[in-house]
Design a protein around this nucleic acid. Structure first.
Lengths: 153, 153
DNA sequence: TTATCTGCAAACGCTTTGCATCGGA
DNA sequence: TCCGATGCAAAGCGTTTGCAGATAA
């Protein structure tokens, strides 16, 4: 279904393996090879990736990380605040490094996902007041028709 | 720069069956009983509902609308701009009437979803500039810990 | 009449779970 | 050492698909 864009630019400030390990331990989680591998794969790919993409990338690199472990690793990385989830549709969960403030635009025709630089909307969103609650992250998903699908070929 | 346009689509509460039918036909879609039933169920429930919830509600009302038809109906209603999709997590797709401008706050512990009144962020989001593309809707999902899960027992 | 939609069943694919083994702290 | 994580298999579940009959326009 939804295809992820190639996305050439750096999606965010990738941390070193040491920094990732520290962040994991800080949350009471262990720094394991699959978790560091998954983080690295995300950093290298430079954009939003599905769990399956990541498993494939790791397998292509000669790794032996199992799908189950990719999910496990992603959950840990999300819990540690290192990785962010993007819900792009039913059965389409994408992951990307945190720290890159941008939105996602989904074409409802071809399913392409495009990164959109965030303006000044995100900080107010995070400060949004919900009595007694703590807001960790804000995710903005825009939907519509991309230039290609709008064009009368 | 872009002026703040009013939210496209029907602002305000539920439409009449006649209005829903008209909106469907305007998109070249047919006004069928399952589609009107699903819309009514959404309107009555007054909030975000899963496809399964809606099928259950209709079954409880003595209807004979099949799950497949609920999905079909929801797709048509979304295409007609009457209903909005909210991706709340893997395997959690929620639907609600369009026109109610609010965000959703998800507790990452208990999974509870809370409506958050939208401030002035949404119009700028819709006007966000993507070269050649047309943005139809903007969805904001906030994540964090709700008051109950944050409370120190 | 005709293209479209419904409904049933079955498949599909992402994600989760259970459990024995392995490994980080 | 000890609790947590990995990995394999298999199940779980929301969603989609194929097709014959029904229906809106």
């Amino acid at each position: 279904m939804a295809q992820t864009t190639a996305h050439a630019g750096p999606a965010g400030p990738a941390l070193t393996a040491l920094q990732v390990s520290a962040a994991l331990r800080h949350e009471g989680l262990r720094a394991t090879i699959p978790r560091l591998d998954v983080y690295r794969a995300l950093a290298v790919s430079g954009g939003h990736r599905s769990a399956d993409d990541l498993a494939g990338m790791l397998a292509a690199d000669g790794g032996t990380v199992q799908r189950t472990s990719v999910y496990n690793a992603l959950r840990a990385l999300v819990d540690a605040g290192l990785v962010q989830v993007v819900q792009a549709g039913p059965g389409t969960t994408l992951y990307e490094l945190r720290g890159s403030d941008h939105h996602h635009f989904l074409c409802r025709d071809c399913g392409t996902i495009t990164d959109v630089p965030a303006g000044s909307e995100v900080p107010p969103l995070l400060d949004m007041n919900i009595p007694g609650a703590r807001v960790d992250s804000a995710q903005v998903v825009l939907r519509g028709l991309c230039a290609d699908c709008l064009e009368p070929h």
